[in-house]
């Protein structure tokens, strides 16, 4: 049972097409979380590996977890090799490489904080410069801590930021739960004007409290999701853990094409959690 639930809850970041209305913005709850409780500034000068007190690696192509392609027909094989994930220059760098490796055509990395850092409510933000190119799928997101015990999307999923590499000016913020997941998730796109997400760092975050999740990019609050917006049970009242990854291909983004450029790196300046 436990294993089955792991498998199912790992099917994440499903394709999203729904765009919610902005009507709740006028009445949204804005709360200030400014007490820093946890952060990784990726400033270590001695160790080039991510802090093992905070981060776990997901390894492989999902087959070992029973979901080859990580549930989304993704093409990459995740490793913990320094080619794919390294802490240097004050940043975490996750690099997607086009190479034949363990039967996959691409390698990349996926880090998560399950059992090491999980938290209910607060402000979760990261400062990131995104990779680019058709078929790249970088994300900063969270899953409920009971993801091992219940079937996804019962555990809940909060996508603070996900991006299609072929849409360099657009990111999406989403919430998945029972009755509103994958293509039916509650989601909203945010588009930069006169700028793009792969040429400089931007802060992606949520303010999450009882009965609301506010999504923001830099200083722009662009969406709020409340129980009124979801068509099923509100499952965002338990601790969640954080995930950072760069996927390649898959249902959400489509495959790389002949114009795609590799390698591609997602640069994470910091991850900070306030309450």
């Amino acid at each position: 049972m436990k294993k089955v639930s792991i498998i199912t809850c790992s099917i994440i970041l499903g394709s999203v097409f729904l765009f919610t209305s902005c009507s709740t913005d006028e009445n949204q709850t804005v709360t200030t979380f400014d007490n820093l409780v946890k952060s990784d500034e990726f400033n270590s000068v001695s160790a080039e590996v991510p802090d093992s007190n905070m981060w776990n690696f997901d390894i492989g192509n999902g087959a070992e977890q029973g979901i080859p392609g990580w549930g989304n027909n993704e093409l990459q094989y995740y490793t913990d090799r320094p080619e794919n994930v390294i802490v240097e220059d004050g940043m975490l760098k996750i690099t997607a490489i086009q190479e034949s490796f363990m039967g996959s055509g691409y390698t990349s990395a996926r880090l998560q904080t399950k059992d090491k850092f999980e938290k209910k409510y607060g402000r979760f933000e990261a400062r990131i410069k995104l990779p680019w190119s058709q078929g790249l799928w970088p994300a900063f997101w969270m899953l409920g801590q009971n993801s091992d015990d219940v079937i996804w999307p019962q555990c809940g999923e909060i996508d603070i930021m996900e991006n299609r590499g072929q849409e360099p000016t657009i990111i999406n913020g989403s919430a998945h739960g029972p009755g509103y997941s994958a293509g039916e998730a509650v989601t909203k796109a945010y588009e930069l004007t006169g700028d793009r997400f792969d040429t400089g760092f931007h802060v992606f975050g949520i303010e999450w409290g009882e009965n609301y999740i506010n999504y923001y990019v830099d200083d722009v609050l662009y969406n709020q999701i409340t129980p009124d917006d979801v068509s099923g049970e509100w499952v965002f009242d338990q601790p969640f853990y954080i995930i950072l990854n760069v996927a390649v291909g898959g249902n959400y983004v489509g495959s790389p094409n002949e114009n795609s450029v590799f390698p591609q790196t997602m640069y994470v300046d910091y991850v900070r959690i306030y309450e």
Binding site: W132, P168, T169, T193, G194, D195, R196, D198, T199, V261
Partner: peptide, 10 residues
């Protein structure tokens, strides 16, 4: 124009 979105020179 200054589009700000012309990027990734190769």
């Amino acid at each position: 124009e200054k589009l700000g979105t012309v990027a990734q020179p190769r």
